[in-house]
Amino acid sequence: MLNEVKKDLERITLEWLENDYLKPDNLFVVGCSTSEVAGKHIGTSGSEEIAEVIFYSLNRLAKEKGIHLAFQCCEHLNRALVIEKRVQENLNLEPVSVIPVPTAGGSMASFAYNHLGDAVVVEEIAAHAGMDIGDTMIGMHLKKVAVPLRFNQKTIGNAHVTAARTRPKLIGGSRAKYA
C-alpha cells in the first residue's frame, strides 16, 4: 500500500512541478484524510505511516518550488492549520493554543506538527493553491478565486484528489454585463 501511495504522490508532485501554478513564497494548503488514502471512511483509520509518505513528498514540492505548506486539521479542530512559525509571523497570523493529535486534528496534521520546523497552529489562511486528498474540504482556506486543476493523477491510494490554484478576481471586462 505505501509503495502505491509513494508512486501516486510522485506522479502528482511531478505534475505540480511541471506547471507554473506555484510561485516562490506561495502558501499551499493540504487537506488529507489518511483513512481515505487507506480505503477507509474519513476519520476512522488514521495512519502515521501514510502521513509520513505524504509529508515528505510534499516537502520536496515545497523545497523545489520555494513554497510554504499549510496542513489542515480535521473538523474536530475546526479545520485549523499547521504552519511554520516564521510563516505565521511573516503573515501576521494569530496562533492558537492546540497541538493536533491523530484523534483531534488528524494523522496528517499531527505528523506535520511534529515534523515541520517550529510548527504552530492558526485558524485560517488564504492560500494561493492547494490539494485536497480524500475530500476534506480545503476551499475555506483558498484565496478568491479558486480555479480547479485537472491533473492526470486523480487519486492517492484510494483517496480522491482535487487540486486548485487561485487567481485575482476578474471585475468587468468584455464578458461582463451591466444594468
Rank of each mutant, 00 (worst) to 15 (best):
I99G: 00
N114G: 07
L116F: 15
I67R: 04
L81M: 10
K65L: 11
Y113K: 04
R86A: 12
H68W: 01
H128Q: 14
R86V: 08
V121M: 09
E124V: 08
V101T: 12
Q72W: 02
P102K: 11
N92I: 03
C74S: 14
L77R: 06
L81H: 07
K63A: 08
A127H: 11
V87N: 03
V98G: 04
E124I: 03
I67V: 15
V122C: 00
N90T: 09
Y113G: 06
E94N: 13
E123H: 13
V121R: 01
H128N: 15
E89D: 14
P100D: 13
V82K: 02
V101I: 13
D118M: 10
D118A: 12
Y113N: 02
V87F: 08
R86M: 10
C74T: 14
E123W: 07
I67S: 09
T103R: 10
L69K: 06
L77S: 01
A104T: 12
L77W: 03
I83V: 15
V87Y: 04
G105F: 07
A104E: 12
A112L: 07
L69F: 07
I83P: 07
N114E: 10
A109E: 02
K65N: 10
E89S: 11
L81G: 03
A119N: 01
F111H: 05
R79H: 14
H76T: 12
I83H: 06
E84A: 14
H76Y: 13
S97C: 09
P102R: 11
L77K: 05
A70E: 10
G105T: 05
I67P: 09
H128S: 13
S107D: 14
L91Y: 15
A119H: 00
H128F: 09
Q72G: 00
V120L: 00
R79M: 04
I125L: 08
R79N: 09
E123Q: 15
E75R: 08
A127N: 14
L77V: 01
S110P: 05
E124A: 05
F71Q: 00
V98H: 01
P102M: 08
S107H: 14
P95E: 07
